Amino acid sequence: MYSRAETSLIRKEFWTAFGQYMKPVPSATGYRVSWQNYKTGVRDIYFRMKAERDFASIGIEIAHHDEELQQLYFEQFLEFKKLLENELKESWDWKIHDHDEFGNKISRIQKVRFNLNVMDKNDWPEIISFLKPRIIALDAFWANIKPGFEDF
């Protein structure tokens, strides 16, 4: 077992290593980007990457507090589903009005890879190999469709 402080430190080390690994990679628009803290530039839409004790995941979270607007955002993403899948070269799980770990109602589009443990440094290369191509693909996808979300 790890103490809370040890767990926090290991996670921080992982995300620092991920950031250093991704630092030389430019965004689709050619600018530098903080990959581990990716900013979509659109309120209530987030690209989330997680590395936990039993899984790693990456996804789009729509966190608008108004359920109808959250659904509208989700439906807008559905309009671009084929474009997203072409960019990612895979399909992801789509869930409308799901709940996050804090009980907030969100909608998400995500890919989860189980049996990876951020606490095991031997898993880090595999976690990074899972996250890297997907966050780059999300960035390329977002560069094309972001204007469709800026008017909400």
Rank of each mutant, 00 (worst) to 15 (best):
T7Q: 14
E13S: 14
W15I: 05
W15R: 11
W15Q: 07
T16L: 13
A17R: 13
A17Q: 11
G19E: 12
Q20W: 06
K23M: 11
V25R: 14
V25G: 01
A28H: 08
S34V: 11
W35K: 04
N37K: 15
V42G: 09
R43W: 01
R43V: 02
E52N: 12
E52M: 12
F55W: 07
A56N: 02
S57V: 00
I58N: 01
I60H: 03
I62Q: 04
H64T: 03
D66G: 06
E67P: 14
E68D: 14
F74C: 04
F77C: 07
L78P: 01
E79D: 14
F80R: 12
K82N: 13
L84C: 08
E85S: 11
N86Y: 02
E90H: 10
S91R: 12
W92K: 02
D93S: 15
K95R: 14
D98P: 03
H99R: 15
E101F: 04
E101Y: 10
E101L: 03
S107P: 05
R108A: 00
R108E: 04
I109Q: 03
V112Q: 06
R113I: 00
N115G: 00
N115E: 12
L116T: 07
V118R: 07
V118N: 10
V118S: 08
D120F: 09
D120E: 14
D123N: 15
D123Q: 06
E126W: 01
E126L: 11
I128R: 10
S129D: 15
F130C: 02
K132L: 02
I136R: 05
A137W: 01
L138R: 02
L138A: 05
D139A: 05
A140K: 15
W142M: 06
W142C: 05
A143Q: 13
I145D: 05
F149Y: 12
E150S: 14
D151H: 15
F152L: 13
